[in-house]
Design a protein around this nucleic acid. Structure first.
Lengths: 87, 87
DNA sequence: ATAAATTGTTTATTATAATACACAAATATA
DNA sequence: TATATTTGTGTATTATAATAAACAATTTAT
């Protein structure tokens, strides 16, 4: 199975997810920035698929209660071999 | 359900996953750095839980064929409401 | 239609991730 | 044990993510 997804597409999707979660909480970009002690510009760029740091991504993930799930997913990846390579 | 996992712990786990995947491919830090056109120092810091950029993380994920899975996981998160909030 | 709020965009500055060395410490190999 | 390889650490430099502020363009509410 060939990986057709690009890094750019993943970054765009990360931004979309942030935007969608933020709006579901009825927060403006400024609200989110203030809550995480980030600048609005950082949120702005992230939501539009620009590069960012792990800290920024994880702060956002944490605010929307996705950190525990993410951690477990990483743990699982460490313990399981690539499922795609089994067949 | 309270989120007890910290951002620092997630970064350490990301680094561990990279190290474990890299070793399963029998690559040195330098091998991986060369393959991704990153410096060995960047790999070194990432594997030890330091901050990094999304581009670095996704380059590594892509090399170990985890990008498609990651993309799908993000898509799923966008479509599902928080399961923890349903009950 | 107007006002208010939010988002997009620019410029300048600061903080820090990434690079490129070198060299020591630790591991693995002969 | 000696040698080779890999990993950890330090310093200096460069590239860029993050901040701050202002203003224009959109969107939403009155």
């Amino acid at each position: 199975m060939i990986d057709t997804v690009t890094i750019k597409e993943v970054k765009l999707q990360l931004g979309e997810l942030c935007k969608q979660k933020r709006q579901s909480y009825e927060m403006s970009q400024e609200d989110l920035a203030d809550a995480l002690e980030l600048s609005r510009y950082t949120i702005q760029k992230f939501e539009n698929g620009k590069n960012a740091t792990i800290d920024t991504v994880l702060k956002i993930a944490n605010h929307f209660d996705l950190l525990e799930n993410l951690y477990q997913a990483l743990k699982d990846l460490e313990n399981t071999n690539d499922i795609n390579s089994l067949y």
